[in-house]
Design a protein around this nucleic acid. Structure first.
Lengths: 347, 347
DNA sequence: CTTGTCTCTGCAATCGATTGCAGAAATAAT
DNA sequence: ATTATTTCTGCAATCGATTGCAGAGACAAG
């Protein structure tokens, strides 16, 4: 009965170390904690450290957490862990936190969006020190919740419109500008846009970025039709592409808000017997893995998601460890990756 | 100072509910816990539940964990979260556990393999109730560690050779048999194999499965050369393919242990000016996302990784909640997905 | 009416670390 | 030599829930 529990943990407690070192448990606690070590005489620290090392003492974070309220746990909320952009983000986040002694709880929202709050409450119950949210919409009640709880949180990939919490995002306007510049340079004059869901900052900002970029080239917005989608999926991309082509038959290029939408556009073109890039040039956004192998290899705008995750981790750590630093966004530059899906329009 | 902590948690404690309901905290604890509810009179249970609901009481899992040793946390160790097979696995695992009130801590081993033990110790320190290991080699010290700690654990994707812990894997032999059957049926008689790292069960078993399948068709093993790789990457796949083709110039097909290796084979063929499937047929393994879009679309053996994750979750939950049930493996059937990378060899 | 059996509920210890407070010892200042 | 100050260490409470034990009351059996 008891043996189970005994074996599961290293079961060396502060008190045992204290006994061995001939001091009180509170002294051991102070000696082993960097912040309070200075309160203890040097020789005692040495004695305690030796005893702790000999006995293989490991501090119990659960007990510490109960007392202090801090846990060395951070929560990450992702909308869909299967989506390939979140792998690198999680990788960046967990790489950073692992090196700082934090563990990362991942909550995958999956299909039940309205369970988000519940998931967050679960994380809070586990006393996470902070949260990374990759799920927020442009004005998200979850942010209200975090703010009201004074829970440190950082947004990643998607941001709110008003900067209530720090966010790490890519430069959506720049990305679309790069995409449109490229297409215009190739000679395209009628360019469509597959817009992401407008409730997400990525969808909204890329759409605006697209239109600004179009205008910057002196093209009329009526020659730059947009089609909204409800989700970043191939199916949505295909459907929206069909609508786009139906409405604007003389379109020669599509700048997409997302790679999956762009791949959906491939599907739609195939269904219509059109070829890319001969008939229509297509450009994606994100540069998720393996795009160099699809046919045609997809020209896209590269975002370093791993870097994004790392940055978000850093910001969150800063927010956890000192309450100052006003919420400020980090905007990472994006970069055009030209492959085979874009070409000059037929003469 | 204090206000921070106060706001972060719902801060309603058992004692407060007890006061409101006019009973002792221990009674509240019993009334709110399904297993002990029967010890409390019905009317009292009702009163307690009402008070708890009114006050928005939420049990503090950290405090409970300290006392009971159980945490409603499970840990998942993945070798590389960026690898697209682990997204679905994690998704399956977390879907299952979310519905059971567990939270999932994900530890990404990433590049520092020798920190595995450290990561696991961290998870244990957080008192995870169990572990899902997607990282194990064919004979892994981590398994010893879990066994010695009596920590419930389930292997997924990769298994050990001796069944010390329950494992959920795909039927590697069947998968290779399907692949070889398909190639033989197309007329191939000299078939190479890109083998995965032999320290992983997948690499080892698929290689054996390949050879068994070859023999089952009466083909000599000398007409079925294998090349080992050190990791499931495109680079390794390309390098091994070059070695394979150098050694066996009359090869007409390659059955690969993994999709990434197969994509590496694409790279190698391109470098040599060979075409797939005209010159060489290639077949992958796993059916990771987006293989239908690569060129040529990759024929592969499909494994349902999400299903694998779910199963592993179920097994782990069972292992956590009752210590019986001998370690038994669950072998999921795999399935051939024919696309464009396989064809009959040139006459 | 007494004794025994159940059914509930409360008491208090416990999980393991942290920390405010106070006392002891050592050192400095007067 | 006395007082003031600093430095160190121990005491004990605390975080919030769980649980073995025992006592109170209800009720049945003798």
């Amino acid at each position: 009965m008891e043996s189970d529990k005994d074996q599961r943990r290293s079961n060396v407690t502060l008190k045992q170390v204290a006994e061995r070192a001939g001091v009180h448990a509170s002294t051991v606690s102070r000696a082993l904690n960097a912040a309070t070590r200075s309160m203890v005489a040097e020789d005692v620290v040495a004695r305690v450290e030796k005893a702790a090392a000999q006995m293989g003492y490991r501090r119990d974070p659960v007990a510490a957490s109960l007392r202090t309220g801090r846990s060395k746990l951070v929560g990450v909320l992702v909308p869909d862990i299967v989506n390939p952009v979140f792998g690198p983000i999680l990788s960046g986040v967990s790489e950073l936190f692992a090196s700082q002694g934090y563990s990362v709880i991942v909550a995958d929202v999956g299909n039940d969006e309205n369970r988000q709050l519940e998931l967050v409450q679960g994380l809070i119950a586990h006393r996470v020190d902070g949260l990374i949210l990759a799920t927020v919409s442009r004005d998200d009640p979850l942010v209200d919740y975090c703010l009201s709880r004074k829970l440190p949180a950082v947004l990643v990939n998607r941001a709110e419109m008003r900067a209530r919490l720090p966010a790490v995002i890519s430069d959506d306007a720049l990305g679309m500008q790069l995409a449109v510049d490229h297409l215009v340079e190739l000679g395209h004059r009628t360019i469509g846009h597959l817009a992401g869901p407008s409730r997400h900052s990525t969808g909204y900002l890329r759409r605006r970025g697209f239109q600004l970029a179009i205008l910057s080239h002196g093209i009329e917005l009526q020659d730059a039709p947009c089609q909204d989608t409800l989700a970043y999926t191939r199916e949505e991309g295909a459907a929206a592409t069909h609508r786009l082509l139906d409405a604007s038959p003389n379109l020669t290029a599509i700048a997409s808000a997302n790679d999956l939408l762009a791949l959906g556009a491939y599907d739609a073109l195939r269904e219509r017997g059109l070829s890319c890039p001969a008939d229509i040039s297509i450009i994606g956004h994100n540069d998720m893995p393996m795009l160099d192998l699809v046919s045609p290899a997809l020209t896209t705008v590269r975002i370093s998601h791993k870097q994004m995750g790392r940055q978000a981790g850093q910001l969150l750590q800063a927010a956890i460890e000192n309450n100052d630093s006003p919420p400020h966004n980090v905007v990472l530059p994006s970069q055009l990756v030209v492959r085979a899906s874009t070409a000059s329009p037929r003469a």
